[in-house]
């Protein structure tokens, strides 16, 4: 379990990174963030780049900032920093809760927010959370900067819409609307494992009916999925048990080609998706109701 030979550089600026990318065939290059996904791939020789660019020394990619619109997180911010952030706990408890479901403390110490987004593991928590929170991802390349909505970012297994010469720099997460309810749940064989299936949702209750529900699942398909049909079905309805059951089973039915592996069949994954969507909607509705009465 030793990696195939590769060159290694650790530039200290983003422009330095872009310059090196420009001088090499970007398909032969791998960016390294926390290395928690990349290093195993290198060690098992499943990934064999000629050059590894370590982003660890690049200035100004490790931050959590509050802005007028919400929160901005630098791509190289560790999950541990998110977990330790008062700001995140206050503004985005959903993000906080999904963070502590990722792996174990040593993995969160090194693993980064940008790395998880760029890795786009179908069972990863962050992409689904980025979907329901309406996050935007910012990438730079020699051609300039672009801002990509989370809905467009995740393409399929371990694939995002980033070009090989693009570097993810930050993730912008808009503030949750006031009196929103939220929930996050996953089923994993063990604490800290990648989930078999997970689900997350946000919604508001106004005059007894659901407004702006957002529902996403992960671990079920080739990428995190948002369920727009189910969301429309729920919009404007009371969050009754019957309604939530119907939305959950619609969401489960909407999954095409659920994943299958040694631990979970396609049927079981689809079933869990329905169960968990139901559970997060109930929990989110309770939180939304509390927020409304509290206000």
């Amino acid at each position: 379990m030793k990696p195939a030979p590769f060159e290694y550089v650790a530039p200290s600026t983003i422009s330095g990174v872009l310059e090196i990318l420009g001088q090499n065939d970007p398909d032969e290059v791998k960016l390294m963030a926390g290395g928690q996904s990349l290093m195993p791939l290198l060690n098992m020789r499943l990934s064999r780049p000629a050059l590894v660019i370590d982003l660890g020394k690049v200035a100004d990619l490790d931050f959590i900032r509050e802005t007028d619109e919400g929160v901005v997180i630098g791509a190289m911010t560790s999950k541990r920093a998110v977990e330790d952030s008062e700001l995140i706990l206050r503004e985005h408890p959903l993000l906080w809760e999904s963070t502590v479901a990722i792996g174990h403390p040593p993995i969160r110490n090194r693993g980064t927010v940008g790395g998880s987004m760029a890795q786009a593991d179908p069972a990863s928590e962050y992409p689904a959370v980025a979907l329901v929170l309406g996050a935007e991802l910012v990438a730079v390349s020699a051609r300039g900067e672009r801002t990509i909505p989370a809905d467009d970012f995740f393409v399929t297994f371990l694939t995002t819409c980033l070009e090989p010469d693009e570097v993810l720099t930050e993730i912008r997460i808009p503030r949750l609307a006031p009196r929103s309810g939220w929930a996050f749940q996953e089923v994993a064989r063990r604490h800290g494992d990648f989930a078999i299936v997970g689900a997350t949702a946000t919604l508001r209750l106004e005059a007894g009916v659901v407004v702006d529900p957002r529902i996403a699942v992960f671990g079920v398909a080739d990428r995190a999925l948002r369920f727009s049909a189910a969301e429309s079905l729920l919009t404007g309805q009371a969050a009754s048990d019957e309604m939530i059951d119907e939305v959950a089973s619609q969401a489960a039915a909407a999954v095409e080609d659920p994943l299958e592996d040694a631990h979970a069949s396609a049927d079981y994954r689809r079933h869990l998706a329905g169960v968990l969507v139901g559970r997060v909607l109930r929990e989110a509705a309770v939180r939304a109701a509390e927020a409304s009465t509290g206000a």
Partner: peptide, 23 residues
């Protein structure tokens, strides 16, 4: 786990699940 053709499917700790202290 082996498949029907005797290929092993659990060849890392991602798939072979040892209990941890949390379990």
């Amino acid at each position: 786990v082996y498949d029907e053709g005797a290929q092993p499917l659990t060849t890392s700790f991602m798939d072979y699940l040892m209990p941890t202290v949390f379990d």
